[in-house]
Write a protein that binds this DNA or RNA. Structure first.
Length: 280
DNA sequence: AACGCAGGCAACCGCCAAGTC
DNA sequence: AGACTTGGCGGTTGCCTGCGT
């Protein structure tokens, strides 16, 4: 039926976003909130299509984003969810507060998939790899044609590792994984309790965390696992005891783009939550 | 030091589903 | 009921960076 493009492509900027563009978008979003994405570029003074703005906001500028490596618990959660849901990245991401589908998709394709292969697990089926059947006959999926990622170069190393671990696929890799992954910049283990302390955890029922929700304190960082969703969702229950600043809120990475005015606006929007919970 | 290559990640593309008129 | 719009999703691409030679 001839679909119209989402926007007039002529004259629109593409490619990486500049700091100035980011700032304009952040400023607009903080002042006006989420509205019709089609109108955002014009209103924000950007030469981008609305779709591009939406992606930039949701994947990079959103205040509630957490960035950096996945924690072990998050990683396990991703693997577990992927085994249940497949490549439904948005669904998977919805169970990891502060993580985006794009981020998880990238992490899966670059890191986790490789790691699974390394420990002798087929990232597609989540079944143990039978080396004899795979080493010689494994056909490279079409997506591997560019870099090959885990299936080519890294895969060769992975196969070597696989030969070490294939006999103890279930348990052995743990220690090895620890060394393979930088532990210095780990995010808090927010997903721990999602699995361990929430036996009723259901992948289709976990609400997507809202920006204002993550501001609600949930006690010490060690128990922050279930905090983001369960704690915050209760709202009134957020009247927590004394907390350490880092345990209840982190300004998004994008705040480097925010001027004083922007931060003022942001606090005018979200600060109320902080006041509510005696955080100031 | 220079070069080439592979990996990582941000962003784009095209399709789909839901909503609106 | 069907055309159209909009937002969202998953796959793919292209650029940048770090590492090995």
């Amino acid at each position: 039926m001839g679909r119209k493009p989402c926007c007039e492509k002529v004259g629109l900027k593409k490619g990486l976003w500049t700091a100035e563009e980011d700032r304009k978008l952040v400023n607009f979003m903080l002042n006006h909130g989420k509205c019709c994405w089609r109108a955002v570029p014009e209103l924000a003074g950007l030469l981008r299509c609305g779709k591009s703005c939406r992606l930039r906001w949701t994947n990079y500028l959103r205040p509630d984003l957490r960035r950096g490596l996945l924690s072990d618990a998050e990683e396990k959660l991703v693997i577990d969810l992927h085994s249940q849901l497949g490549n439904r990245w948005s669904k998977i991401a919805s169970h990891l507060p502060g993580r985006t589908d794009n981020e998880i998709k990238n992490l899966w394709n670059t890191y986790i998939k490789k790691k699974l292969r390394k420990i002798g697990t087929d990232p597609l089926t989540h079944m143990p790899i039978i080396p004899s059947a795979n080493e010689q006959t494994h056909q490279q999926p079409k997506q591997q044609r560019r870099h090959g990622d885990a299936w080519s170069n890294g895969d060769q190393k992975a196969e070597e590792a696989t030969s070490k671990y294939c006999c103890e696929v279930d348990e052995a890799p743990e220690a090895e994984e620890k060394s393979a992954v930088s532990t210095s910049d780990r995010a808090p283990d927010i997903a721990d309790a999602s699995l361990s302390s929430c036996p009723e955890f259901c992948t289709d029922e976990v609400p997507i965390i809202q920006p204002h929700e993550i501001l609600i304190p949930c006690g010490s960082s060690s128990s922050s696992s279930s905090s983001s969703s369960s704690c915050s969702s209760t709202g009134s229950s957020a009247k927590a005891g004394p907390i350490e600043p880092a345990s209840f809120m982190e300004l998004p990475e994008s705040t480097y783009l925010w001027g004083v005015d922007d931060l003022t606006v942001w606090f005018s929007i979200h600060g109320e939550e902080l006041w509510k919970h005696d955080l100031f």
